[in-house]
Amino acid sequence: MTRKLEISKHKLVPQHEILSEEEAMVLLDKLNISRGQLPKTYKNDPMVKKIKATVGDIIRITRKSNTAGESYYYRVVIEP
């Protein structure tokens, strides 16, 4: 009757992954910004919880885009 809720399979949910510290530095360097200037996502967001990210982590989101095919978006995890 009931089963576990697997949100990552939903069509609306793109792929999320945590950037390693080196990758994060490379990204921030390339964009020439600080962590706080990135778009944000809350620590208690269902997808953030699922990939077990902690505050300060940068998450790479691989969006399926209608215009670009596929694109990357980055969010930093913050306290709500």
């Binding site: 809720l5 949100i7 939903h10 609306l12 949910v13 793109p14 999320h16 996502t41 809350y42 967001d45 269902p46 997808m47 953030v48 989101i61 969006r63 978006y73 969010r75």
Partner: peptide
């Protein structure tokens, strides 16, 4: 609430 902020954006 259920699927997260990225899903909300798509929605």
């Amino acid at each position: 609430r259920v699927l997260g902020i990225e899903a909300a954006r798509n929605a």
